Simulated assay, not measured.
Amino acid sequence: MHSERASLSLRLAAWGGLLFLHFPILIILLYAFNTEDSAFSFPPRGFTLKWFAVAFSRPDVLEAIKLSLQVACLATLIALVLGTLASAALYKRNFFGKESISLMLILPIALPGIITGLALLSAFKSLGIEPGIFSIVVGHATFCVVIVYNNVIARLRRTSQSLIEASMDLGADGWQTFRYIILPNLGSALLAGGMLAFALSFDEIIVTTFTAGHERTLPIWLLNQLSRPRDVPVTNVVAMLVMLVTMLPILGAYYLTRGGEGVAGSGK
């Protein structure tokens, strides 16, 4: 009789793969609480929360966190609007060039980040736009749109057309149908797409490097800290913060969209 449970060797291999992938992250988490300020003192000498207080008392850390949050929120807002509009325009009707438009929407996240960054830098220079917060937000929005678009168009394709037709037959106009029928069905898809876009924008570094100019987001701050070994404990604390800020939205989006039709289907 065939068993649906995986064999012991397969389960051990799976756990071994997870340990291999997450071991470096566990090291960073461990050293964020180390009492020693040495980067290579192993095993850790003790447990302390001192470096958290040091990290959050530094103005450069707080400014980098503030800038990253500001950029991520603006990029997510732009992505929600443009991604929803694009998915609404493409999910139902067929027309000439539809596949090409879909490919162009998905292309920014499929291309290597260095290509996207170079292209954006060249475009901004040709338009006379100086690198700054505006260029960072635009750069992040180019790939965040894809995340929202994929989530929303998948939900629209599962939405029952009979609900929309019934709304129109009962006298609702386009806005009322969107507000009371389509938008409630898109709620969790928009939330999941927004959370994923926020997480992707918050820890983006490659595109940001080309578009930031003199601005320093949190990932760029971390990159600059690699040349300062005396600040390793503070760097570990900030790295743990970045991991938590990006991990929690991803987990939330996963729980919002899991379960197939039960969650991502035609129901609210």
Rank of each mutant, 00 (worst) to 15 (best):
L62R: 14
A64G: 09
I65G: 02
I65F: 08
K66V: 08
K66N: 09
L67M: 13
L67R: 11
S68V: 05
S68H: 04
L69K: 01
Q70P: 00
Q70S: 14
C73Y: 02
L74Q: 05
L74V: 14
A75S: 14
A75T: 03
L77T: 07
I78D: 00
A79D: 02
A79C: 06
A79H: 01
L80T: 02
L80S: 01
V81Y: 06
V81E: 06
V81R: 06
L82R: 00
L82Y: 01
L82T: 09
L82E: 01
G83E: 03
G83W: 00
T84E: 07
A86L: 12
S87A: 15
S87V: 03
S87T: 07
A89P: 07
A89F: 13
A89I: 08
L90I: 10
L90M: 13
Y91W: 15
Y91E: 11
Y91C: 08
K92V: 01
R93E: 13
N94W: 13
N94Q: 15
F95K: 13
G97N: 11
E99M: 12
E99A: 15
E99P: 03
S100C: 08
I101K: 11
I101S: 11
L103E: 14
M104N: 07
L105I: 15
I106F: 03
I106E: 07
P108H: 04
P108S: 06
I109R: 01
I109G: 00
A110R: 10
L111H: 03
P112N: 09
P112A: 05
P112L: 07
P112I: 03
G113P: 00
G113N: 05
I114M: 11
I115N: 06
L118W: 02
L118C: 04
A123G: 09
F124V: 08
F124R: 05
F124T: 01
K125F: 09
S126I: 09
L127Y: 12
L127I: 07
G128M: 11
I129K: 06
I129S: 04
E130S: 14
F134I: 12
F134V: 12
S135D: 06
I136L: 15
I136K: 03
V137M: 08
V138L: 14
A141P: 05
T142L: 07
T142V: 10
T142A: 08
F143W: 04
F143A: 00
F143R: 00
C144E: 08
C144K: 02
V146Y: 04
I147Y: 10
